Amino acid sequence: MIFRRRRLPPDLHDALRAADRRDAWQRLRDRLRPPWWLRWGAALGLAGLAVAIGWQAGLIRPVAPIPRVVHGIPEGTPAPLARFTARVGVVDGDTLSVGHERLRIHGIDAPEMAQPCERAGRPYACGDAARDAMAGILGRGVVTCAQLDTDQYRRRIVRCHDEAGRDIGAELVRQGWALAFTRFSTDYLRQEAEARAARRGLWEGRFDPPWDWRARSRN
Rank of each mutant, 00 (worst) to 15 (best):
G76D: 03
G72W: 00
R104W: 09
I73V: 15
G58S: 06
L96I: 02
P78T: 04
A64R: 14
R61L: 11
P62Y: 01
R68E: 15
W55N: 05
L46E: 03
V91N: 04
V70S: 07
I108G: 06
L103I: 08
A43H: 12
P78R: 07
A42T: 09
A86N: 02
T95E: 02
A64P: 11
A82Y: 07
R102C: 02
G54N: 09
L49F: 13
L81M: 09
P35S: 03
V88Y: 07
A47T: 11
V90T: 10
W37H: 11
G41R: 06
G45C: 10
F84V: 05
A79I: 01
P35R: 06
R83C: 00
L59E: 04
D92K: 08
G48C: 14
I105L: 15
A120R: 13
R68C: 02
G76Q: 01
A42H: 01
R102Q: 13
P78G: 06
I66V: 15
A50K: 01
D94W: 06
V70D: 02
V98Q: 14
P74G: 10
A79S: 10
A50I: 09
V90A: 05
S97K: 12
M113D: 08
A50D: 00
R61K: 13
I66D: 13
V69W: 10
I105G: 04
R39M: 09
H71Y: 05
R122A: 15
A50H: 00
R68V: 15
A120T: 05
A114K: 15
C117N: 10
D92A: 03
V98T: 12
T95M: 03
V91H: 07
L59C: 00
I60W: 14
G72F: 00
G48K: 04
L96E: 04
H106S: 12
I108P: 02
C117M: 11
L81I: 01
A42R: 13
A82D: 08
C117F: 09
R104Y: 05
G107N: 11
Q115V: 03
R104V: 05
P80R: 06
A42K: 05
V69D: 06
P116A: 09
P78L: 05
I53H: 06
V88T: 11
L59P: 01
D109R: 09
G99Y: 05
S97A: 15
R39C: 03
D94P: 05
G121W: 05
D109S: 12
L96C: 02
G89Q: 08
